[in-house]
Each structure stands twice: as C-alpha cells, then as structure tokens.
Amino acid sequence: MIRKNDLSEVLFAFVIIAFGLFLVYSGIDLSIGKMSRIGPGFLPLCLGVIITVLGIGILFERQEKHLDIPPNIRGLALITLAIGAFAALVETTGLFPATAALVILTALANHERIRPLTLLGTIIGLCVVGYLLFVAALQLPFKPISPDLISWFTGTN
C-alpha cells in the first residue's frame, strides 16, 4: 500500500516536470519579446522553469502520510459519465433527457441502494425545478425537450 503511494507520488512529480518542460517549450514558441514590450511567451517560460524546478524538488522530498482509502475508480468513472452525458445531451436532446441521464448515472455511482421510485421522484423534481428556475426565471437557453427528439420519437418528420 505505502509502496504504491510512493510510486504514484514519484510518477506525479514526473508529470509536473513534463508539464513544466511543455510550458518552457510553448513559452519560447509564443515569443518572449523584449523589455519594452514583453511577449506573450514570457510568463509561460518563467512558470515553466519554476514548475520544472519545483517538480524536481518534489521528486526528492520526503512524503507525508497518505489517505488509506483505495481510489474510487468506479465512482469517478460514473460521475464523469454523468456530467459528460449531461453536457452532450442538454443542447441536443433537451434539458429533461439530460437531467434524467445525469441523475441515473450519479445514482449508479453511489453504493447506497436507491429505490426506482425515489430515483424517478428526483428526476421529475429536478426537471421541474430546472425548468422553472433556469428556463422560465433565469432564461437560460434550454429547451425542455428538443423538437428533433420529439419528431424522432413520434416517427414524424
């Protein structure tokens, strides 16, 4: 366990160093400019150097104690899917289907059991709140259900 953590710390330090080097490269690419007109690449370059040095420092730093909870890959994956699905659906199929997808996927991420009726209640509740609050009151440009989806469903053109 402790070993694995050390490994991930070391790997992450390398990620930091790589990120720093990437910044140095982009900084030079963006042009550094001159003293009377500093270019857009000046700050990225400076930060790149600093981050690279800090990354090397962290590589040799003694690590503190760690969380001993194993990583929650399943939760992370499902929350990612939930948010991704909402983002992908909200403008294409409308607010309601996107909300339903988000609630179902988030519920799956949780290990607590949830009754189908509670789930449905949450979906309907959020759709109603979402519509009244965000569409009717705050005028966000959502359609409750996209007209394209409706015509696809009813089979008409």
């Binding site: 309601f96 789930l119 309907i124 409750p144 259900i145 409706i150 469903f153 053109n157």
Partner: peptide
Amino acid sequence: MKHVFKKVLAVAAIASASFVGNAA
C-alpha cells in the same frame, strides 16, 4: 424502471409538440 421513464418522456414529448406546432 426504464419503461416508466419512456412513458414520461412520451407524455412530455406530446405536451411540448403542441407548443412547437407542425412544420406546415
């Protein structure tokens, strides 16, 4: 569960279809 969801969607679909009107 999925069945119920589909029904809700269909009802909502019909409801909003009346707003949108036909393409005529």
